[in-house]
Design a protein around this nucleic acid. Structure first.
Lengths: 335, 335
DNA sequence: CGAGGCGTTGACAGCGCTGTCATGCCGCCC
DNA sequence: GGGCGGCATGACAGCGCTGTCAACGCCTCG
């Protein structure tokens, strides 16, 4: 009739429920013969433990919480998709929670999921490092992705932000650019600050000065960035190339160019864009490898779930410059 | 120390746990004075019920399950984002599960979430209607989105697929096209079959014959579609316009065109594309309004959660043709 | 040969909540 | 005034599982 419970399995295999519980949880000290018998009964009845009961009886749910700005963002959607698929493979569920850009909401969402009993988190945090550290739970494993925010003591996966941006700007310099702008809000995100540092270093090493008027750090959403971009691009001393620090700002730059009907400004975007290959010219990007990031994050989470006291790992994945056209444009009037 | 339980609230407010339970669940028959007292205690202690315990004690979790092909798909990502935000507003969580294009997996994912105790589903099903009907749970409210698959007895939200496709093809005809192709796998998806019907009707009404060699129904992913598209576009009697039945196939068409370095084929894509405005020419689409779809789906779910025996509603949302350029291209050699 | 130890198993008490049913109380009716 | 019905509340038994601890071998060692 109804779903079988642990009692049914126990009766079927002639042991106590506790032994069944041991088998379910891969606990040691079960005689192989008993183990086999219980396993058979489980298969026979199609038994599956009730997660709610497991949790109530002291444990956590076989669930991982994914906390990101917005899963409508292609980068995070990709991340969530990979985590979901990996989780499903090991019988875990995925709870998603989006925070927008609200630090308080980051905190409340994490707390909500934690109370909900998730076994672990994959979080892309932002904002003040101290606030982030306070928001993250101490009793549940957390893997911080993409934006380590100076968190310590937790596993983290991120990309070589500084180096990626450096490489991108270097690429632009190599293509003859001298006036290179930077777009992207750096305040709330440690990651973006790193990218900015890479930008700065590349300029410095090329013997170029940083012109603060070419650095636009107020933009986050496309809507915010649009007017700022339009303004930047129509200046008499407009930059001949731009580094967009995020896909969103990249889109803003592209849209602004489109509106102004211009295609002469070289552009490298940090983070891949859906349809980037189809743009005119195709957009050169610094690939963040969201898939690899997500895989690594999930691996780290699993590892910590198994060995809760393992040394925290800060994994740094390389980025990859993907030249597609927009980053190879030469400045106007150049050879 | 630890989180307060219902007992703490009961003690604090001088009532039994049962009364607290009543208050939590908005049950009737609680004297206003008692209600207020309990509410105060709840606020004071910051009490929040433990979902696992609630579920174990007979109920379902305040959770909605979202089951889609892949949340990496921008359309579903958008859908999930909206559902998540609406759910959060009423204190519910969102569990996501992706099915790929595997009918068996649709079934198993739904069952898993159901066992997990979700209170309701938002599902984008596919495949054989009978199989879908069998896969969907009968004891948990389900709202079917985007692809009603002939399901009966459940709430559904969808768009005017036939009419949307009709309008698109009509649009192409009005721009002088006579050889108009259709791309998109129609087999597994009722929705796509509807779109095909709209395509056919528009041709018929325009006095044009359906040329089956211009109809490509084998393509689903971009990878699959690419070679087929390349072949289609390079034929001597190639179509001068295409209707792509899904965003994915739309991307395939665009990519194929790009590879072939062609921009002369008019294109309307069913479903919006990220970055569509930035293409050359910007892509004309039939907007499915994922946000409205998701909002409506969530509303329906909430309604059913409240009134489980309400009459099932089959909501049909209008589509919107968004001319952006690619659909307004005229055939070569036309006036 | 008995004590001690370890590997194996089970009994049982919760976990925090909800459903069922019982209880007490008040107002109403005949 | 006694009886009845309805509202407000509480006592209590689970829900399905896990943690704790005790019990029961059996093997080893002195």
């Amino acid at each position: 009739m109804s779903r079988p419970t642990i009692y049914d399995v126990a009766r079927e295999s002639g042991v106590s429920i506790k032994t069944v519980s041991r088998v379910i949880n891969d606990a040691p000290n079960v005689r192989p013969a008993t183990l086999a018998r219980v396993r058979t009964a489980i298969d026979l009845l199609g038994y599956q433990p009730d997660p709610a009961a497991q949790r109530l009886g002291g444990g956590r749910l076989p669930t991982v919480g994914v906390v990101v700005d917005s899963i409508a963002d292609p980068f995070f959607a990709q991340l969530a998709a990979v985590v979901e698929s990996r989780a499903a493979a090991v019988g875990m569920d995925v709870l998603i929670a989006s925070t927008g850009l609200d630090e308080e909401r980051l905190r409340s969402q994490v707390e909500r999921l934690s109370r909900r009993g998730v076994a672990g988190f994959v979080v892309a945090p932002f904002g003040d490092p101290a606030a982030v550290a306070a928001a993250l739970p101490s009793d549940v494993p957390v893997v911080v992705v993409d934006r380590p925010c100076g968190t310590v003591g937790t596993d983290a996966v991120r990309v070589t932000d500084e180096a990626g941006a450096y490489e991108a700007v270097r690429h632009l310099v190599d293509h003859g650019h001298r006036r290179i702008g930077f777009v992207g809000r750096t305040g709330q995100f440690v990651t973006l600050a790193d990218r900015y540092r890479g930008y700065e270093r590349a300029l410095r090493e090329a013997g170029l000065e940083v012109d603060p008027t070419l650095v636009e750090t107020r933009a986050w959403t496309t809507e915010e960035a649009l007017p700022l971009m339009a303004q930047l691009l129509t200046r008499p001393d407009a930059p001949s190339a731009l580094l967009a620090a995020t896909p969103m700002t990249g889109l803003a730059v592209l849209t602004a160019q489109q509106r102004l009907n211009r295609r002469d400004v070289a552009l490298v975007v940090f983070g891949d864009l859906p349809g980037a290959e189809l743009m005119t010219p195709p957009t050169t990007v610094v690939d963040q490898q969201p898939t690899a990031l997500a895989e690594t994050a999930f691996d780290l989470l699993q590892r910590r779930l198994r060995e809760p006291s393992a040394e925290p790992l800060d994994t740094v994945l390389p980025t990859r410059l993907v030249p597609r056209g927009s980053g190879e444009l030469r400045p106007r009037g150049a050879a």
